[in-house]
Amino acid sequence: MSITALFRDDVMLGRLIVGISRSPKAILASVVCVVLLLAAIVGPYLTPQNPFDLAVLDILDSKLPPGSESMDGLVYWLGTDGQGRDMFSAMIYGLRTSLGVGVFSGMVALLVGTVLGLIAAYFGGRIDALIMRIVDLMLGFPTILVALMLLALLGQGLWKVIFALVLVQWATFARAVRSAALVEKNKDYIEAARTLGISTPRILIGHLLPNCLPPLIVIGMLQVANAISAEATLSFLGIGLPITEPSLGLLIANGYQLLMSGEYWISVYPGVLLLVLVFSINIVGDRLREVLNPRLGER
């Protein structure tokens, strides 16, 4: 695809990009998303200290308010936590974990949901009925309830959290892919592909899937935001990530006890970062949904 095609109205991806560029709010939110993503990727090069290297931590520096200076001249712009960790560094590392878990579980759920949704739509009949029954069952339960149930039984851990997040998210993707694929599969190009004798997996992946992608991008974004929120909540409750993988949720939980005694920065700043992250992903996702759903009109 050439670059100009990205901005053409009749190409789906182009429509999404044009849609974002017409809303200042969405442009700003996209910029924030990209900046946070980059910060998470290059994280260790950005932070003044490695917050989990015990050798550089000094317990005398614990609970310093924002702007304090350490013995060796390092300024803690956002203060330090109970262990004397620089909050800014801890937050960047937390952002890495939160984004990593959210994006990874979102991608796996997207993969699982897409495969099952395509199969359901293409083959129809009993397979369709079976898959959709399970989807309905899953969607009937609130995300947090299923995740709670699972982690209450399994205990905490990185892979258990990812498993729980995938389990609660795949059904949303499956349903979206199925309904998009049901519309697409009766169109002439699929019939043409079939007449040409192209194998079923190739029709599914090469022809049907690309045309079901746009709604998936939107749901994918909203689901990643949800996953990040859910992981933070579970970690806060003490049944999510273990203390060795500190996500933003755990950082906030650490500051919870200190909130009452006035050390607000330990929980406030990680919370603000979490909010900005989830909020900007949601703004972009919401804008894309409006663009894809012209029924409600251009706003």
Binding site: K25, G249, I252, L274, F279
Partner: peptide
């Protein structure tokens, strides 16, 4: 509408802590 997006982006546990911080502490 932007406020409503903010509403469901606010992590519920953090929002609760902020309520405590502002209205109680």
């Amino acid at each position: 509408m932007t406020g409503s997006i903010l509403g469901f982006s606010l992590p519920s546990f953090w929002q609760g802590m902020m309520l405590i911080m502002i209205f109680s502490v």
